[in-house]
Amino acid sequence: MNQSPAVDEVEMLHREIDRAFDDFLPMEPFLRKAFLPGRLARAYPLINLHGDKDNLYVEAVAPGIDPESLNLTVVRNDLTISGEKKRLPGDIKPEMFHREERATGKFVRTITLPVEIDDNKISAEYKNGLILITMPKSEKAKPKQIQVQVS
């Protein structure tokens, strides 16, 4: 019932490994993700998937993206988010940096949605560094009330 296709076997394995490392890397989870490039390449942006009777909602945490570069596509149940977090302007000399912790670069992520959606009515918004996507479920995927006849 709670099983969502978004959590596949590989993802589960990754999580197991992450959990094993939790004891060795006592940092805040958010930062840990931001600092390890390998992991970042695996899943960026991080998402939360919510839903109600009519819609699915995705919230992707991606601060500082150039909205022009944001690109969302849906093919059947697969939602793809891509975009680019721009580097700082190149005229800053390396020796001028005191700290450089923010990750930059292009990203792409595909999420398999648990139900079929109506791809004509998807809407998206970029607010406070969060990508908010609203996807209406297709008619077929909505729950139907079935009357039980008492005889």
Partner: peptide, 16 residues
């Protein structure tokens, strides 16, 4: 603040 609506299905990140 989270801005996503609806009931959680699958969550990866908790904003603090």
């Amino acid at each position: 603040q989270h801005l996503v609506k609806g009931e959680p299905i699958y969550r990866e990140i908790e904003l603090t």
